[in-house]
Amino acid sequence: MTPAVTFEPRVSAALADFLLSMADDEFVIGFSDSEWTGIAPILEEDVAMSSLAQDELGHARALYELLADLRADGHDADALAYDREPEAYRHARLLDHGRGDWATTIARRFLYDTADAARLASVGEGWPPLADLVAKIRREERYHVMHVTLWAERLANGGGEARSRFLDALEALAPDAGSVLASPDGESALIGAGILTRPMADAASAWRADVAAILGPLGITLNLANTEARPARAEHGEAFRWLWGEFTSVRRSEPGATW
């Protein structure tokens, strides 16, 4: 049960948007990970990607539940996760890319996990239900960062095709990576309410330093400046529409079914 809170309307609206963007990020990356179940390059990775997917979908569920409690408009976590048209999802542009090859998957996950860590580190005590959940999520996410960093090092140090594919993937994703930490609408209201402790621009600087500290020793420099004019969390492409068709297929085939 979420304790009742009374925020000013502009704060609750900003909080709802922020929750939705975090939940959609975790939901979409979780589903993308689950696409590797059964076809990952090695058995351990098959298991790991499935476990990562389960973690992320669990985080998404908990965030959607908070959002459902906050809005209290009768839409539960399932409705939020599955009953929207593709245009209504608010995941970051970085996660709009299709699964791609293994190098792309690792590059995307590396950029996302490091950015997500900086975002989670920016959540304050302003709304206790979110602060409590984030504290728990961070304990799990550090394993994700650890795991994907090992893979980034393995590919970068692998030379030949492994390194060149990984570099190509990083280059291709870099212009979209900053979308995870784009300033949310109503950011100042969130900071005023203590829900965020710093602007996302500060989180993004910290993230770029974190990424450089890992990639630098691997001889990789990446331009992560956000130079894209396209919106960070709207206008989704074909790859996401396909994924949406997959993850909503059961729900759409029998609306309202329970099991």
Partner: peptide
């Protein structure tokens, strides 16, 4: 450690 992720969320291999 073979992998930080095992067959359930709480396990490593």
């Amino acid at each position: 450690m073979d992998s930080a992720f095992g067959p359930t969320q709480c396990r490593s291999l």
